[in-house]
Amino acid sequence: MIRILGIDPGSQRTGIGVIDVAADGKSTHVFHTTINLLDNDSFHMRLRQVFEAVGEVIEEHAPTEVAIERVFMARNPDSALKLGQARGAAICAVVNRGLDLAEYAAKEVKQAVVGGGGADKSQIQHMVGVLLGISGKLQADAADALAVALTHAHTRASTVRLGIPRTAWRRRR
Rank of each mutant, 00 (worst) to 15 (best):
I68A: 03
V54A: 01
E59T: 13
Y104N: 01
A90E: 00
A102I: 05
R97C: 00
G117T: 05
C92M: 13
I68R: 03
V54Y: 02
E103G: 04
V113D: 00
H61F: 08
I58D: 00
V71S: 07
A106P: 14
E103K: 08
N96L: 11
A86W: 00
P63A: 09
Q111P: 02
E69Y: 03
E69A: 05
D120G: 13
V114H: 03
L83W: 13
A53S: 15
L101N: 00
E103P: 04
I91E: 02
Y104K: 08
S122R: 14
Q123V: 12
L99V: 11
A86D: 00
A53G: 04
E59G: 11
A93D: 12
T64L: 08
A106Q: 09
V109R: 01
S122F: 08
V109L: 02
L99C: 04
A62S: 12
L101P: 00
L83H: 10
D100A: 13
I68E: 00
P77N: 11
K107V: 09
M73T: 14
V57I: 15
A102C: 10
C92T: 10
L81T: 14
A86K: 00
S79E: 14
R87W: 06
G117V: 11
G84I: 11
G116N: 14
G115F: 02
A53Y: 10
G117L: 07
A93V: 11
V71Y: 09
G118E: 12
V109F: 02
A67F: 05
Q85N: 06
G115D: 08
K110H: 10
R70N: 08
A105E: 14
P77M: 13
V71C: 05
V71T: 14
L99G: 06
L99S: 05
A53F: 08
A106T: 15
V66A: 01
Y104P: 04
A67Q: 02
